[in-house]
Design a protein around this nucleic acid. Sequence first.
RNA 1: GGAGAGGUGGCAGAGCGGCUGAAUGCAACGGUUUGCUAAAUCGUCGUAGUGCGUAAAGCGCUACCGGGGGUUCGAAUCCCCCCCUCUCCGCCA
Length: 421
Amino acid sequence: MLDIKKIREHPDAVRKGIADKQLNIDIDAIRILDDERRNLSKETDDMKHRRNTVSKAISAKKRNRENADPEIRDMQELSTKIKENDARLASIQEDLSTRLLAVPNCPAPEVPVGKNEQDNVEVSSWGKIPEFAFKIKDHLDIAENLGMLDMKRGAKIAGSGFPLYTGWGARLERALINFMLDLHITEHGYTEIFPPFLVHSDSATGTGQLPKLAEDMYYLREDDLWLIPTAEVPVTNMHREEILSAKDLPLKYVAFSGCFRREAGSYGKDTRGLQRLHQFNKVEMVQFTHPDDSCRCWEALTGHAEQVLRKLELPYRILELCTGDLSFAAARCRDIELWAPGSGKWLEVSSCSNFEDFQARRAGIRFKDDKGVRYAHTINGSGVATPRLMIALIENYQQEDGSLAVPAALRNYLGTDRIEA
RNA sequence: GGAGAGGUGGCAGAGCGGCUGAAUGCAACGGUUUGCUAAAUCGUCGUAGUGCGUAAAGCGCUACCGGGGGUUCGAAUCCCCCCCUCUCCGCCA
């Protein structure tokens, strides 16, 4: 959520930010409602002031056994008016909140202006794109041949998009998760969190999934709960409506979770194998930082995600997202993409975002230092999501005989240096 | 799922219609004292909205005692609904 004061005082900057994000939101309606709210609120507060004052006088008269009937009659009338005003105020407030929740975060000034993903800017790359002396296969063929993955049975159990890992596939999945968690905990200073996979609406609103992305989440009507699309949601909400101490910042959390996405509207896109799933596993990093520190922490966090890929010796590139490709809540974002030779594509495995105070304002996450109480900044990024990591791993490490080499960093976790049929 | 107890400021814990935005204690912060530490002592010490002020400081008003309604001139305090925590019983991984 944006600061209403920012909309009030710098409407042009906000308009430009929204337009750069290729969105269309009516800022003027918000400003009119805001004015209306303030005027009515002032008027009502003055009435309440009178009521409080007179009520005290009534109290004094009663104590002295004097008659206070005229005052009481006045106040009965006034209270009725106050009630009417409060009702109007509540409806204005609700309208305003609804509109305010629909306003996206503004892009940071450093973000390149662009229309869509075509305008994203590559900022760095690492590793060598491998060349093969034999005819390579894609991850699905390799994994199914090695008995690691059974998409057909996954579909039998839960429908398409729900992968069923088997044998070495299941073990590899588990090994990757442990490897990534351990790396972030021991080398990058994160505290491990194991969060709930279901959250209520307040939490989903706090991080910005609701109301805009309701159709992308699985919802349990009976219990009014949402399956999390990412651990970002429960972990960021850990400190909802809290005032943190400045000396504890940055708070760095890393969490494994299942992630559940309906992927509404993307049917028929990237359907082969593990590219796009309704359920997948992810290790997510979340930080709560001081506003002056968030940019530096965001860069560091991106580096932590990179480290996973370097240790696994997988070639990747990093893109700075342009304004048009930036998500609703993000001020800045860098995507990390792995090279998948079998599919001949770059695959996004991590999105590292700085939300600045956007989520914090929605979720009431603040901190206190000697300058007072302010909103913290939140940043997060995958470190990383497993399905596409698995794709890249399988496709980059495939051998001519159909077996799979295991990168050195993973051998202790997996207990083998080779996966064969 | 059933029965009971309870949710008050960073924490502990009073208050149970008006003099309570909230006693008291602890913690925290600032000063004094001290060779240092400890102790002592004085002071400060919630959040939000809004108005005045160029603004910082400051001052005023309003709201907030789990959430939402209601009663009343007036509600932390009375009534209703909901949520959460704890204890016991039942069921179950």
